[in-house]
Design a binder for these strands. Sequence first.
DNA 1: GTGAAAGCGCTAACAT
DNA 2: ATGTTAGCGCTTTCAC
Lengths: 361, 361
Amino acid sequence: MGARVTIADVAARAGVSISTVSLVLNNKPTRISEETRERVRQAAQDIGYSPNKVAQGLRRRLTHTLGLISDSIATTPYAGQMLAGAQDVARENGYMLFLVDTGADPEMEEDAIAQMRAQQVDALIFAAMWHREVSPPSNLPKKAVYLDCFSHEAPRPSVIPDEVAGGRAAVQHLVDAGHTRIAYVDVDEGVPPVASELRHRGYLAVHEEHDLPVDPALHVKGASTHDGGRQAAEQLLALPASQRPTAIFCFNDRMAAGLYTALRCHGLNVPTDMSVVGYDDQQLVAAELYPPLTTVALPHYEMGKWAAQVALGIRAHAASDAPYLMPCPLITRESVASPPVGAPTHPGGEASKKHKGDHSF
Amino acid sequence: MGARVTIADVAARAGVSISTVSLVLNNKPTRISEETRERVRQAAQDIGYSPNKVAQGLRRRLTHTLGLISDSIATTPYAGQMLAGAQDVARENGYMLFLVDTGADPEMEEDAIAQMRAQQVDALIFAAMWHREVSPPSNLPKKAVYLDCFSHEAPRPSVIPDEVAGGRAAVQHLVDAGHTRIAYVDVDEGVPPVASELRHRGYLAVHEEHDLPVDPALHVKGASTHDGGRQAAEQLLALPASQRPTAIFCFNDRMAAGLYTALRCHGLNVPTDMSVVGYDDQQLVAAELYPPLTTVALPHYEMGKWAAQVALGIRAHAASDAPYLMPCPLITRESVASPPVGAPTHPGGEASKKHKGDHSF
DNA sequence: GTGAAAGCGCTAACAT
DNA sequence: ATGTTAGCGCTTTCAC
């Protein structure tokens, strides 16, 4: 854009050589008199000089740019906080962020990587909108880092959410509130997201730890949408009274919203008749449900920061190929209460201490 | 990153000078034998050469980068499609996108602009998350363009949604369905968004065109959230039966969701008991309500494209300072039906043709 | 203490 | 039809 003022202009105005200008403006430990330094700084200030980053980049072979390639985090209302995290650490460290969304198209991914290389980015983040395994193009730089995804074929430093711990936290919270019959509304998709099984693992672990029986009828599935949640809830509500859950742990907030709808249609109240915990802490959704949804937050912002920090070498990461597991905090709101009095605690209403390992199916 | 292969390497391998390489790789109309051209292309291909954009940028004084500064579109789940639009245009035209979110902090905005200039971006977009007037820093380049915002002090080409037409479309749709008592659930904020008044203008225009009376009691306000919508609905529902609306036009989808909640709590069904139209077509919200919400879409993607196109000079824009008004399409889903039979058509149940201009309050 | 000069990788006159 | 040369704006030895 306009700013055609170069280092030569500063030098001229300060009556020194351009190398002197460069030296003082970069605070090089070269011995230049404080007097000249001041004169140079003043001159630069006066004419509004700001170094041309492109020229600097060419010379220093460092562009102070960070590339972020994602399938669609930038263009989807879901995981934008990852961008926020990455952006913040970039800015704090004087980096600019190059962004490209590829729609997960391999050809575009490869092209995006080529573009990033051509632009001489100093570091690169390869991100996914939702936690999954990816197969990045072969031209992915060695120094890239994965954000919200990982790859076995092409391992790199990687951050993903600690889904198992998240699932545990959700279910433990329900158990703490007194629930023993807890349903898991799972997602039912062609390729189930890795999160699905991981969260369920957390669900099972808590059951095992508390010697709670696991009722297969309480593990229902549906599409990962509002409507999927609604339909899953209908399944649960169709169960005989003695078998019904008193609480539901839901794969995500969208489905939890569907749950709310179904429950309300049946005249059931959240949380007095049914407790529900979601997952994601989706912005503009979880906190806006009525009542506000207790849920497990996906640490998008923190993961974004982590990725940018290790990409820029500001943060060390373990040498192992194991992804870094970012904690998923439980966000307590108003959708959980004690079970209604008189609710059955176990199938048929008989309380029982089942032996461990009985929760397989 | 790795790619340390330069034009000199290609020249060496092809047995020509670097200028020849440059000439053929840039398809310059200089007469170089087809034979040599092929040899050069082959050599480049063989060693995986890709021109250093930084060096090119320095020399050509054109970096093929587009800067996008926003208050928070990238980090908020709301208007990400603007980014998508800008990104798509950038990519299609061989540009890379520099992104920075400033949180609307003037100091950060100024700094972001300075960074963009220093990076020698070829074009700049200044964007807002929601349609508003902005006061950009004084260092905003002359060639910048506004996206989803505008400024009187520092005019530039600008795109904003055609809110008046959107409001008209919504209310006209309701009138077409047979409604005559239509409420407007407005937003009640310290500084009301410019959209608020504009959409209301559309509401009034339709009433005037159809000689429909405008009942001030039907213009209620609340916070622009789920809960604000819920409370506004309660106000409407507290009206005597004869004064109740049969349809509600809502400032945004979040509030419409709150409306749904309140309606359901009162045992009212959408759309048979009450029709509702929202605004925004917010991703993962509007289509996921139950029933899916008929709403007016904010043309985020199209606005993003427009901004990028005029910023890059691919698209002409009118010389005037008037912002370009992007149409807001009505998205018809399932929240609108005819009014219930027997519903009053006007206050007190008496139908009436009021004279024009009677809708002031 | 400060300046001259070389060069980052590339483009574009200008030669040949 | 192709090569030589002079920079783009900056950093960084190396002289003085």
